[in-house]
Amino acid sequence: MKENWWKIIGIGLMLFSLIFGMLTPLKPGLPSVFPFNGKAGNQLTLSIQGYNTHFDEVKDQRVWLKLGDYTLGASKLEATSSNLLKATFNTPDILPSKDSVVVFTLISDNEIDGASVMPSAIFVKQANIDSLGAAQIWPQNSVDNLHQRAGITFPYRNVLGETIRNLYYHVSLWFAMFLILAVSVFYSIRYLHKENMVDDHRADAMVSVGVVFGLLGCATGSIWAKHTWGTWWTTDVKLNMTAIFMLIYLAYFVLRGSFQDEIKRARLASVYNIFAFASIIPLLFVIPRLVDSLHPGNGGNPGFGGEDLDNTMRMAFYPAIIGMTLIGLWMADLRFRLSVLADKLLDRM
């Protein structure tokens, strides 16, 4: 029991991350608004779709259109259900901007849900442009006394929605895979240094777990891509590089399979493992950053950070990385013991 503490920690952290990551509700958000365009001077009636909101239970619901410091509150509000709100705005003839089409941000606030923001929610067209005149008509900084939603929530992001939870599993799988492959390279180097068969078995077990994690990472990423990009697989550079990287590691198994002699196999597999690991570093970390990519963290796209990764998410994300790595090491350990036992059995026969 004493030497198994790390397995228990791994399982515990993973369970915590699964339960916490899956059960914590998302912060209320505004997924869509209809219509999304209008004319200045008209009365604008917007149907605002809410997510996890309680429009029909609250009394102090407020909604604004916001452009810079200028904000226009809704003149009439009518909640048809907990997730549907009709808001009417009386827009002045002129807008505080020099453009003919102006993009407004929508802000909603009430005591239960707290404040939610929908950026670039509605396009308003103005016939006459008079930004100085409009600056005197439009109210400024009327958004105040915003509420905070009580309890622990994950941030709501348009497009991502509930799939924001996939961050804990998809990203941490890749982290864990990379750590495990790095450990396997360590064992390969040790094998070449000391020529101890045990190290080769360990390296082999680690690579197989790493490949399984890579496949799972692809699968979770694919689900995420289906939701956000609308397709299971695209010709995005990061995805292609991942496919190549899987090919490199599958070739490792082909290489192992093509030798009968144990020592020869161990040595060549170790050499190839080191070579392969070095060649995936430019594959996964350098090239995707140089060219355009849809994937977060590449080609000018920001990774998760700032507002997208708040502290409640970190509470599920970091345990998932550690837990995933520990479980992977445990899986590799089981495989390693299996291959050692198989070797012993062969020796006895």
Binding site: I244, L247, I248, V254, L283
Partner: peptide, 12 residues
């Protein structure tokens, strides 16, 4: 084996 091993490495 030559083709299997070298093609993925040479792609980048």
């Amino acid at each position: 084996l030559m083709a299997i091993l070298s093609f993925p490495i040479v792609i980048p």
